[in-house]
Computed example of a mutant assay.
Amino acid sequence: MRFVEVARFTDLTEPQVAASALRASGIPVILQRDLVIQVHVNLIYAIGGPGLLVPEEDAEAARAFLNEVRTQPSTLAPLGSVEATLRLILSLALTWLTGFIVPLRPRRFERLGDGPAL
């Protein structure tokens, strides 16, 4: 079985989700360079980003799926500038105080598929 690259990405989350969706549809997937990027996140552009490899006979179906999914518009609105700035300042302060990276991302219910707790 010969594997070919069907896509490259500029972050690590999107290819992990895409690989999961392709695997769920029965297409074997290899996520290339993901461990190196997890260890050294600053190398993501130097090594060309993570890539998805699929069997040659499934390449067209995988490319069609990825093209369809990537062109759908997002329903998520960006954060307001005040909220984004406050989250950044608080994240930097907590990172400096604790010595650990503390990302403060808002919970996006549309992305998780559930609504706020009542």
Rank of each mutant, 00 (worst) to 15 (best):
S20C: 07
S20K: 10
A21G: 02
L22H: 05
L22Q: 02
L22S: 07
R23G: 06
R23I: 04
A24V: 04
A24N: 08
S25Y: 04
G26S: 06
G26H: 01
G26M: 08
I27D: 00
P28H: 00
P28L: 00
P28S: 10
V29I: 04
V29N: 01
V29T: 01
I30N: 03
I30G: 03
Q32T: 06
Q32S: 03
Q32H: 08
Q32N: 07
Q32I: 03
D34R: 00
L35Y: 05
L35F: 03
I37W: 11
V39H: 09
V39E: 13
V39R: 11
V41M: 10
V41W: 10
N42S: 14
N42A: 14
N42D: 13
L43S: 12
L43G: 05
I44P: 06
I44V: 12
I44M: 09
Y45H: 15
A46L: 08
A46T: 13
I47V: 07
G48Y: 11
G48D: 12
G49C: 09
G49V: 05
G51W: 06
G51I: 03
L52K: 04
L53W: 12
V54I: 11
E57Y: 13
E57Q: 15
A62R: 03
A62F: 04
A62H: 10
A64R: 15
A64V: 15
